[in-house]
Design a protein around this nucleic acid. Structure first.
Length: 451
DNA sequence: TCTGGGGTCCTGAGCCGG
DNA sequence: TCTGCCGGCTCAGGACCC
């Protein structure tokens, strides 16, 4: 692994080549009580882009997404370390990133590609242990308790082996935290970035943890950090030494309990593969605020289609439909309705969403963002509720939920085989010659019909 | 400075039934 | 029959994470 320079290790493992580690079991004295690994890909989206376009290597690269990444409304999804040197950070507005680093290469995200690379990397983790808990496309927790025994390698050696394998197979670097718990492992990987490995031994946990700022604790964002500051808590040690009742008054019951546990180095959470999903949704910020009711209905249909297709793709159904509206002044409301039975059907989800939109968006009011989310989801083993005549409602002229469901399954199959563009709702097709807010077959007069 | 899109979790109010 | 209490559910919103 001479191609990389590891850094920042609190207890640095010596770095033999991956194969040597595989066959040469050794152990680091510090990591024997550290069964949890947190693996975090370095600047993942940006690194994938650079790998696909070698001419970008060594340059500041910013992957920006959102409503209009070329304009003002996008945010930075990922920035290469060359861009970070200019102060560019994830979640930063694109306009600000452009000011900080005008010569950076701004590229749009390619999520299918990232997902593909992520699957391959996760598969590599699964070669080590079945206990892999992905947190997102670019990071995961691994419980290597069993692997230590099976492979005769220490956790740190496993971490280095993973780093070597990821680089050899994908030409991407990652950072690994090795610790007794998930929280410490995650902090450790963050501290070892980029391209490093850090072991936080069990008996050095508090020494590592306590000097960190309170905002390093999981669950402390801007608001909670502010509340903690008012309480005089600046560092993790301050939080650890604050009596629980005072903490409860400042940040609430559940939050106080969690922060107190973490600040004292206690984190009993297990690495759980295959956590069930709780909700599935889709949302979109418009390039310009939209007040046109026809356009809003069409966008809502598009979002409901995306959400229900995702539900069906994962074999899920949900009961609560939530509509999210963000107004131009950035105030955001959510309105929801719970159905008597779970569904993955576009007409039902869209029907509820459009009812909520009509009820809560005054005529003429512009919208910055619309979102549709289906909550209370579970595996879709129960058949869709039908009424006595076998039809639970109309979704349009000569179209019932029963035969609409058949059409949806057929469309899903076609999309799976030929791509997302293979089948589209007629209401979402633009009329040739019209652009942007073009005329569609969905009109205010058409009610909730979509077929 | 001006804020994406995918999520999870928590809190509190209000309603309803036992 | 009325009232109060309690638990469960729904709904809305906030905070947080990546």
């Amino acid at each position: 692994m001479s191609h990389r320079t590891a850094s920042h290790s609190m207890v640095r493992a010596d770095l033999p080549p991956a194969e040597a580690i595989r066959h040469g079991p050794r152990s680091s004295p510090a990591d024997h009580c550290c069964p949890v690994l947190h693996v975090d890909m370095d600047a993942f989206y940006a690194s994938v882009e650079v790998r696909e376009r070698p001419e970008l290597a060594g340059r500041p690269v910013v992957v920006a997404g959102g409503a209009n990444p070329a304009g003002d409304r996008g945010v930075v999804l990922s920035a290469s370390y060359q861009a970070r040197a200019f102060g560019v950070r994830s979640a930063m507005p694109v306009a600000q990133a452009r000011r900080l680093c005008p010569h950076a290469e701004f590229v749009p995200p390619h999520f299918p590609r990232y997902a593909e690379v992520s699957r391959a990397v996760m598969a590599l983790f699964c070669e080590i242990t079945p206990l892999v808990e992905p947190l997102s496309l670019d990071e995961a927790f691994l419980d290597v308790r069993g692997s230590v025994r099976r492979l005769g390698m220490s956790p740190a050696e496993i971490g280095e082996w993973i780093r070597g394998q990821v680089y050899d197979a994908h030409r991407l670097t990652c950072s690994v935290g090795v610790a007794p718990s998930k929280f410490l492992a995650k902090l450790a990987s963050g501290r070892s970035k980029p391209d490093g490995l850090l072991v936080v031994p069990a008996d050095g946990a508090l020494e590592f943890l306590h000097p960190l700022p309170a905002s390093a604790l999981w669950g402390v964002g801007q608001r909670t950090a502010q509340a903690l500051r008012r309480l005089g808590c600046v560092t993790v040690a301050d939080v650890a030494n604050t009596p629980l009742p005072a903490l409860r008054r400042a940040v609430g019951l559940a939050c106080a309990q969690q922060l107190h546990e973490l600040a004292n180095g206690r984190d009993e959470r297990r690495v759980v593969p295959d956590l069930p999903e709780k909700s599935v949704g889709a949302e979109e910020t418009f390039a310009q605020d939209v007040a046109d009711r026809v356009v809003l209905r069409r966008e809502l249909l598009r979002l409901a289609d995306r959400a229900t297709a995702a539900l069906r793709g994962r074999g899920l159904r949900g009961r609560t439909v939530t509509l999210k509206i963000r107004y131009p002044d950035f105030t955001t409301i959510t309105r929801s309705r719970t159905l008597p039975d779970p569904t993955d059907s576009l007409p039902r989800v869209f029907g509820v969403a459009i009812d909520l939109l009509d009820a809560h968006l005054p005529r003429g009011m512009a919208v910055r963002l619309l979102g549709v989310r289906v909550e209370q989801v579970a595996r879709g083993t129960v058949a869709e509720q039908l009424t006595l005549d076998g039809v639970s409602g109309d979704v349009g002229a000569n179209c019932t939920y029963a035969n609409w469901a058949d059409a949806e399954r057929a469309a899903d199959a076609a999309r799976a085989r030929f791509g997302c563009a293979a089948v589209r709702l007629a209401a979402l097709l633009e009329t040739p010659g019209r652009s942007g807010r073009g005329e569609t077959s969905l009109s205010p007069e058409s009610g909730n019909q979509i077929c």
